[in-house]
Amino acid sequence: MRKLSTRRRHFLALPALLAMALLLTGAAYAVVAPDSATAESDASVSQIEAGRQLFVVGCASCHGLNAEGVTTAGTDGEPGNYGPSLIGVGAAAVGFQMETGRMPLARSGPQAPRNQQTYTDEEIEQIAAYVASLAPGPARPSEKDVDWQSVDEEGIARGGEFFRTNCTACHNSVGAGGALPSGRYAPSLKDVEPIHLYEAMLTGPQQMPVFSDEVLTPQDKREIIAYVKTVQQQGNDGGIGGGGLGPVVDGMFMWIIGLGILTGFAVWIGMHGTRTTKR
Protein backbone atom coordinates (compact mmCIF):
# COMPACT_ATOMS: atom_id res chain seq x y z
CA MET A 1 0.00 0.00 0.00
CA ARG A 2 2.81 2.26 0.89
CA LYS A 3 4.55 1.45 -2.32
CA LEU A 4 1.54 2.63 -4.30
CA SER A 5 1.08 5.83 -2.35
CA THR A 6 4.76 6.80 -2.65
CA ARG A 7 4.71 6.39 -6.41
CA ARG A 8 1.44 8.19 -7.10
CA ARG A 9 3.33 11.28 -8.01
CA HIS A 10 5.55 9.40 -10.41
CA PHE A 11 5.66 11.10 -13.79
CA LEU A 12 4.22 7.95 -15.45
CA ALA A 13 1.28 7.67 -13.10
CA LEU A 14 -0.98 9.91 -15.08
CA PRO A 15 -0.45 8.24 -18.46
CA ALA A 16 -0.82 4.80 -16.82
CA LEU A 17 -4.10 5.84 -15.25
CA LEU A 18 -5.30 7.20 -18.56
CA ALA A 19 -4.40 3.96 -20.34
CA MET A 20 -6.19 1.94 -17.69
CA ALA A 21 -9.28 4.10 -17.93
CA LEU A 22 -9.32 3.81 -21.70
CA LEU A 23 -8.93 0.02 -21.56
CA LEU A 24 -11.71 -0.26 -19.06
CA THR A 25 -14.06 1.90 -21.05
CA GLY A 26 -13.20 0.03 -24.21
CA ALA A 27 -13.75 -3.33 -22.58
CA ALA A 28 -17.02 -2.18 -21.05
CA TYR A 29 -18.13 -0.84 -24.43
CA ALA A 30 -17.24 -4.11 -26.13
CA VAL A 31 -19.48 -5.96 -23.69
CA VAL A 32 -22.41 -3.55 -23.93
CA ALA A 33 -22.25 -2.55 -27.58
CA PRO A 34 -24.71 -4.12 -30.14
CA ASP A 35 -23.51 -7.09 -32.15
CA SER A 36 -23.60 -5.35 -35.51
CA ALA A 37 -20.97 -2.94 -34.44
CA THR A 38 -18.61 -5.70 -33.41
CA ALA A 39 -19.33 -7.66 -36.56
CA GLU A 40 -18.42 -4.64 -38.57
CA SER A 41 -15.28 -4.02 -36.69
CA ASP A 42 -14.30 -7.70 -36.80
CA ALA A 43 -14.21 -7.74 -40.55
CA SER A 44 -10.79 -6.85 -41.70
CA VAL A 45 -10.28 -4.30 -44.39
CA SER A 46 -8.88 -6.92 -46.75
CA GLN A 47 -11.96 -9.08 -46.33
CA ILE A 48 -14.23 -6.16 -47.13
CA GLU A 49 -12.15 -5.37 -50.19
CA ALA A 50 -12.29 -9.00 -51.38
CA GLY A 51 -16.04 -8.93 -50.85
CA ARG A 52 -16.33 -5.74 -52.86
CA GLN A 53 -14.43 -7.32 -55.76
CA LEU A 54 -16.79 -10.30 -55.76
CA PHE A 55 -19.78 -8.01 -55.45
CA VAL A 56 -18.81 -5.90 -58.42
CA VAL A 57 -18.43 -9.03 -60.58
CA GLY A 58 -21.40 -11.10 -59.41
CA CYS A 59 -24.00 -8.81 -57.87
CA ALA A 60 -23.60 -5.28 -59.18
CA SER A 61 -25.48 -5.89 -62.43
CA CYS A 62 -28.71 -5.92 -60.45
CA HIS A 63 -27.85 -4.33 -57.12
CA GLY A 64 -25.71 -1.50 -58.47
CA LEU A 65 -21.98 -0.90 -58.26
CA ASN A 66 -22.24 0.46 -54.74
CA ALA A 67 -25.15 -1.78 -53.71
CA GLU A 68 -27.46 1.20 -54.06
CA GLY A 69 -29.92 -0.86 -56.15
CA VAL A 70 -31.05 -0.47 -59.73
CA THR A 71 -34.32 1.23 -60.48
CA THR A 72 -36.20 1.16 -63.75
CA ALA A 73 -38.69 3.54 -65.29
CA GLY A 74 -41.47 1.48 -63.83
CA THR A 75 -45.17 1.88 -64.37
CA ASP A 76 -47.73 4.46 -63.32
CA GLY A 77 -45.06 6.96 -62.37
CA GLU A 78 -43.73 4.66 -59.65
CA PRO A 79 -40.09 3.72 -60.20
CA GLY A 80 -39.64 0.02 -60.81
CA ASN A 81 -37.20 -2.07 -58.87
CA TYR A 82 -34.70 -4.13 -60.83
CA GLY A 83 -32.56 -5.06 -57.87
CA PRO A 84 -33.10 -3.66 -54.39
CA SER A 85 -30.59 -1.55 -52.53
CA LEU A 86 -28.51 -3.59 -50.12
CA ILE A 87 -27.41 -0.70 -47.95
CA GLY A 88 -28.29 -1.60 -44.40
CA VAL A 89 -29.52 -5.15 -45.02
CA GLY A 90 -26.63 -6.52 -43.02
CA ALA A 91 -24.56 -9.67 -43.19
CA ALA A 92 -27.50 -11.85 -42.11
CA ALA A 93 -29.41 -11.08 -45.31
CA VAL A 94 -26.38 -11.91 -47.45
CA GLY A 95 -25.85 -15.16 -45.58
CA PHE A 96 -29.46 -16.21 -45.94
CA GLN A 97 -29.87 -15.31 -49.60
CA MET A 98 -26.55 -16.74 -50.80
CA GLU A 99 -26.24 -19.84 -48.67
CA THR A 100 -29.76 -21.02 -49.54
CA GLY A 101 -28.92 -20.48 -53.22
CA ARG A 102 -31.60 -17.83 -53.70
CA MET A 103 -28.88 -15.43 -54.82
CA PRO A 104 -27.42 -15.15 -57.39
CA LEU A 105 -30.81 -15.28 -59.06
CA ALA A 106 -30.93 -17.62 -62.04
CA ARG A 107 -33.83 -15.83 -63.70
CA SER A 108 -36.34 -13.26 -62.66
CA GLY A 109 -39.71 -14.48 -61.47
CA PRO A 110 -42.30 -13.81 -58.82
CA GLN A 111 -39.92 -15.07 -56.17
CA ALA A 112 -36.35 -16.37 -55.88
CA PRO A 113 -36.49 -20.14 -55.36
CA ARG A 114 -34.28 -22.07 -52.99
CA ASN A 115 -31.33 -23.52 -54.87
CA GLN A 116 -27.83 -24.92 -54.66
CA GLN A 117 -25.27 -22.70 -53.00
CA THR A 118 -23.01 -21.35 -55.77
CA TYR A 119 -20.39 -19.29 -53.89
CA THR A 120 -18.04 -20.83 -51.36
CA ASP A 121 -18.56 -20.17 -47.65
CA GLU A 122 -15.48 -17.97 -47.63
CA GLU A 123 -16.65 -15.87 -50.58
CA ILE A 124 -20.06 -15.42 -48.98
CA GLU A 125 -18.38 -14.29 -45.79
CA GLN A 126 -16.40 -11.71 -47.75
CA ILE A 127 -19.47 -10.39 -49.56
CA ALA A 128 -21.33 -10.30 -46.26
CA ALA A 129 -18.49 -8.30 -44.73
CA TYR A 130 -18.63 -5.87 -47.64
CA VAL A 131 -22.42 -5.40 -47.42
CA ALA A 132 -22.23 -5.07 -43.65
CA SER A 133 -19.57 -2.38 -44.01
CA LEU A 134 -21.94 -0.16 -46.02
CA ALA A 135 -24.28 0.60 -43.15
CA PRO A 136 -25.26 -1.00 -39.84
CA GLY A 137 -27.57 -3.98 -40.28
CA PRO A 138 -28.29 -7.30 -38.63
CA ALA A 139 -25.21 -9.46 -38.27
CA ARG A 140 -25.12 -13.19 -38.80
CA PRO A 141 -26.35 -15.07 -35.72
CA SER A 142 -23.80 -16.74 -33.53
CA GLU A 143 -23.51 -20.46 -32.80
CA LYS A 144 -25.23 -19.87 -29.50
CA ASP A 145 -28.16 -18.09 -31.14
CA VAL A 146 -29.04 -21.09 -33.25
CA ASP A 147 -28.22 -23.78 -30.72
CA TRP A 148 -31.77 -25.13 -30.68
CA GLN A 149 -30.77 -28.44 -29.13
CA SER A 150 -30.19 -26.63 -25.85
CA VAL A 151 -33.84 -25.57 -25.67
CA ASP A 152 -35.77 -27.52 -23.03
CA GLU A 153 -39.26 -29.00 -23.44
CA GLU A 154 -40.96 -25.98 -21.98
CA GLY A 155 -39.11 -23.82 -24.49
CA ILE A 156 -40.15 -26.07 -27.36
CA ALA A 157 -43.81 -25.80 -26.33
CA ARG A 158 -43.44 -22.02 -26.08
CA GLY A 159 -41.75 -22.00 -29.48
CA GLY A 160 -44.83 -23.80 -30.80
CA GLU A 161 -47.02 -21.00 -29.48
CA PHE A 162 -44.82 -18.41 -31.21
CA PHE A 163 -44.81 -20.49 -34.37
CA ARG A 164 -48.61 -20.82 -34.48
CA THR A 165 -49.06 -17.14 -33.76
CA ASN A 166 -46.54 -15.78 -36.26
CA CYS A 167 -45.60 -18.38 -38.84
CA THR A 168 -48.24 -21.06 -39.58
CA ALA A 169 -50.55 -18.70 -41.45
CA CYS A 170 -48.10 -18.80 -44.37
CA HIS A 171 -45.71 -21.66 -43.67
CA ASN A 172 -48.28 -24.27 -42.51
CA SER A 173 -48.43 -26.00 -39.16
CA VAL A 174 -45.52 -28.33 -39.90
CA GLY A 175 -43.71 -25.85 -42.12
CA ALA A 176 -44.77 -27.55 -45.34
CA GLY A 177 -45.17 -24.16 -46.99
CA GLY A 178 -48.15 -22.38 -48.48
CA ALA A 179 -49.30 -20.45 -51.52
CA LEU A 180 -49.30 -16.65 -51.67
CA PRO A 181 -50.85 -14.36 -54.29
CA SER A 182 -49.48 -13.99 -57.83
CA GLY A 183 -47.25 -17.02 -57.98
CA ARG A 184 -45.43 -16.22 -54.77
CA TYR A 185 -45.26 -18.68 -51.92
CA ALA A 186 -44.05 -19.29 -48.41
CA PRO A 187 -41.40 -21.95 -48.91
CA SER A 188 -41.23 -25.25 -47.09
CA LEU A 189 -39.15 -25.19 -43.92
CA LYS A 190 -38.11 -28.79 -44.34
CA ASP A 191 -34.34 -29.36 -44.18
CA VAL A 192 -33.62 -25.66 -43.76
CA GLU A 193 -30.49 -25.00 -41.68
CA PRO A 194 -31.27 -23.49 -38.26
CA ILE A 195 -29.06 -20.50 -39.05
CA HIS A 196 -31.13 -19.76 -42.16
CA LEU A 197 -34.39 -20.03 -40.22
CA TYR A 198 -32.91 -17.52 -37.80
CA GLU A 199 -31.68 -15.17 -40.52
CA ALA A 200 -35.01 -15.33 -42.35
CA MET A 201 -36.82 -14.18 -39.21
CA LEU A 202 -34.20 -11.50 -38.65
CA THR A 203 -34.12 -10.06 -42.16
CA GLY A 204 -37.57 -10.88 -43.61
CA PRO A 205 -36.57 -11.98 -47.11
CA GLN A 206 -38.96 -11.49 -50.05
CA GLN A 207 -42.60 -11.69 -48.89
CA MET A 208 -41.71 -12.38 -45.28
CA PRO A 209 -42.11 -9.74 -42.59
CA VAL A 210 -39.10 -8.84 -40.43
CA PHE A 211 -39.16 -10.22 -36.90
CA SER A 212 -36.49 -8.05 -35.32
CA ASP A 213 -34.93 -8.86 -31.98
CA GLU A 214 -37.34 -6.43 -30.34
CA VAL A 215 -40.34 -8.39 -31.66
CA LEU A 216 -38.98 -11.89 -31.18
CA THR A 217 -35.96 -12.02 -28.88
CA PRO A 218 -33.05 -14.30 -29.80
CA GLN A 219 -34.39 -16.70 -27.17
CA ASP A 220 -37.85 -16.70 -28.85
CA LYS A 221 -36.25 -17.34 -32.23
CA ARG A 222 -34.22 -20.21 -30.85
CA GLU A 223 -37.38 -21.73 -29.38
CA ILE A 224 -39.24 -21.41 -32.67
CA ILE A 225 -36.38 -23.16 -34.46
CA ALA A 226 -36.43 -25.86 -31.79
CA TYR A 227 -40.18 -26.38 -32.28
CA VAL A 228 -39.92 -26.57 -36.08
CA LYS A 229 -37.01 -28.99 -35.90
CA THR A 230 -38.71 -31.13 -33.26
CA VAL A 231 -41.98 -31.39 -35.16
CA GLN A 232 -40.21 -32.20 -38.38
CA GLN A 233 -37.93 -34.77 -36.85
CA GLN A 234 -40.44 -36.53 -34.63
CA GLY A 235 -41.69 -38.71 -37.50
CA ASN A 236 -45.25 -39.34 -38.48
CA ASP A 237 -47.28 -40.83 -35.68
CA GLY A 238 -50.09 -42.72 -37.31
CA GLY A 239 -48.42 -43.78 -40.52
CA ILE A 240 -47.49 -42.34 -43.88
CA GLY A 241 -48.22 -38.65 -43.78
CA GLY A 242 -49.61 -36.54 -46.57
CA GLY A 243 -46.68 -34.15 -46.21
CA GLY A 244 -48.58 -31.88 -43.84
CA LEU A 245 -50.90 -30.85 -46.64
CA GLY A 246 -53.99 -31.98 -44.81
CA PRO A 247 -57.41 -33.10 -45.97
CA VAL A 248 -56.97 -32.53 -49.72
CA VAL A 249 -54.47 -35.36 -49.85
CA ASP A 250 -56.61 -37.52 -47.55
CA GLY A 251 -59.64 -37.12 -49.80
CA MET A 252 -57.56 -38.01 -52.83
CA PHE A 253 -56.25 -41.14 -51.06
CA MET A 254 -59.74 -42.28 -50.15
CA TRP A 255 -61.29 -41.70 -53.57
CA ILE A 256 -58.48 -43.19 -55.61
CA ILE A 257 -56.94 -45.86 -53.42
CA GLY A 258 -59.72 -46.68 -50.94
CA LEU A 259 -62.69 -46.67 -53.26
CA GLY A 260 -60.47 -48.12 -55.99
CA ILE A 261 -59.55 -51.17 -53.93
CA LEU A 262 -63.12 -51.69 -52.76
CA THR A 263 -64.52 -51.37 -56.28
CA GLY A 264 -61.96 -53.95 -57.32
CA PHE A 265 -63.24 -56.27 -54.62
CA ALA A 266 -66.84 -55.55 -55.67
CA VAL A 267 -66.04 -56.52 -59.26
CA TRP A 268 -64.33 -59.64 -57.98
CA ILE A 269 -67.33 -60.60 -55.85
CA GLY A 270 -69.73 -59.71 -58.64
CA MET A 271 -67.92 -61.95 -61.10
CA HIS A 272 -68.31 -65.02 -58.94
CA GLY A 273 -71.84 -66.30 -58.67
CA THR A 274 -72.62 -69.69 -57.30
CA ARG A 275 -72.47 -71.36 -60.67
CA THR A 276 -70.00 -69.33 -62.52
CA THR A 277 -68.62 -70.59 -65.78
CA LYS A 278 -65.24 -69.19 -66.47
CA ARG A 279 -63.74 -69.12 -69.84
Binding site: N172, S173, N236, G238, G239, I240, D250, W255
Partner: peptide, 27 residues
Protein backbone atom coordinates in the same frame (compact mmCIF):
# COMPACT_ATOMS: atom_id res chain seq x y z
CA UNK B 1 -52.90 -48.47 -39.50
CA UNK B 2 -50.55 -47.21 -42.19
CA UNK B 3 -51.75 -43.82 -43.43
CA UNK B 4 -51.84 -40.83 -41.15
CA UNK B 5 -55.01 -38.76 -41.12
CA UNK B 6 -55.77 -35.53 -39.32
CA UNK B 7 -52.67 -35.31 -37.10
CA UNK B 8 -54.36 -32.91 -34.64
CA UNK B 9 -51.22 -32.63 -32.54
CA UNK B 10 -49.29 -30.70 -35.20
CA UNK B 11 -52.13 -28.20 -35.61
CA UNK B 12 -52.13 -27.15 -31.97
CA UNK B 13 -55.11 -26.01 -29.91
CA UNK B 14 -57.67 -23.73 -31.51
CA UNK B 15 -57.13 -20.05 -31.06
CA UNK B 16 -59.27 -17.67 -33.14
CA UNK B 17 -56.24 -15.45 -33.82
CA UNK B 18 -54.23 -18.25 -35.43
CA UNK B 19 -54.53 -20.12 -38.70
CA UNK B 20 -52.40 -22.53 -40.67
CA UNK B 21 -51.64 -22.39 -44.38
CA UNK B 22 -53.31 -25.18 -46.32
CA UNK B 23 -56.37 -25.21 -44.06
CA UNK B 24 -58.90 -27.35 -45.86
CA UNK B 25 -62.16 -29.03 -45.01
CA UNK B 26 -62.53 -32.77 -45.46
CA UNK B 27 -63.15 -33.59 -49.11
Amino acid sequence: AIIQINPVWVYGPYNPSEVTAGSQPDW
